[in-house]
Simulated scan of single mutants.
Amino acid sequence: MYDALAPMTTDALDRGVAWLARAGLRPTRQRQTLAALLVGDGCDRHVTAESLFAATLETGEKVSLATVYNTLRAFCDVGLMQEVTVDGARSYFDTRIDDHPHFFWEDTAELTDAPSEGLNIVSLPKAPDGTEVSRVDVVIRLRRIS
């Protein structure tokens, strides 16, 4: 249902520690485990806190769901990931941090990268006084037809 996470290997752990170091984050054991699962194979992926929590349990690492949420938010705060909100109750966390659109597959609740070709945002409304646009998220919802 979600992007498969990286296998837990020594290389994956090393890649995860390097990823944390780039952002200046202290490599706690739990952060190392989460980072290795997220970026250990060098692939970008989209996860929910729940899917990452489940994968973490499979490694034998003791971590709470609250810790997973807090760690994902910390990763976002330092620019390692971005949060993509699909609706008010569902957030995905993306290891690819450049500006890009997403497809949300309604039947599987999966978030995937969408091609940027053909997407043209010509203009945006003027931001209210004292604010600026920090980012524009494009989530294209898909429904399969029979």
Score class of each variant (00 low, 15 high):
T33R: 07
E58G: 00
T95K: 04
V136I: 14
E58C: 05
T112F: 05
P27F: 05
D137Y: 06
L13P: 00
D11W: 04
T48K: 10
L111K: 05
A89P: 00
R45Q: 03
A54K: 13
L20G: 07
D77G: 07
E61I: 08
L25E: 10
L65K: 07
A23L: 04
G60D: 10
T67N: 08
N70I: 00
T108C: 07
M1H: 13
V78T: 15
E50L: 12
N70K: 13
A6V: 02
A23M: 04
R15S: 11
R96E: 13
V17F: 06
L65P: 00
P125C: 06
H102L: 06
L111G: 01
Q82H: 14
L142N: 02
A49N: 10
L25N: 05
D137L: 11
L34S: 02
G118D: 06
L80K: 04
S51T: 15
L80N: 04
V84E: 12
P7G: 02
R31V: 05
Q82K: 15
L142Y: 03
F93C: 03
G60W: 09
E50V: 10
I121A: 05
G88C: 05
N70A: 14
Y69R: 14
T67L: 00
Q82E: 14
L119K: 02
E117G: 12
V136Q: 03
S64N: 02
L38R: 05
A18E: 15
I145E: 15
D98N: 10
G60T: 08
S134F: 01
T67Y: 02
L111T: 02
L111S: 03
D11P: 02
A6D: 04
A49K: 10
A109Y: 11
T10C: 03
Y69Q: 09
T9V: 08
G42C: 05
R26E: 15
D113A: 13
P7R: 08
P128T: 04
T67P: 00
H100Q: 13
T56K: 02
P125L: 09
S134T: 13
L52R: 03
A109F: 11
H46F: 08
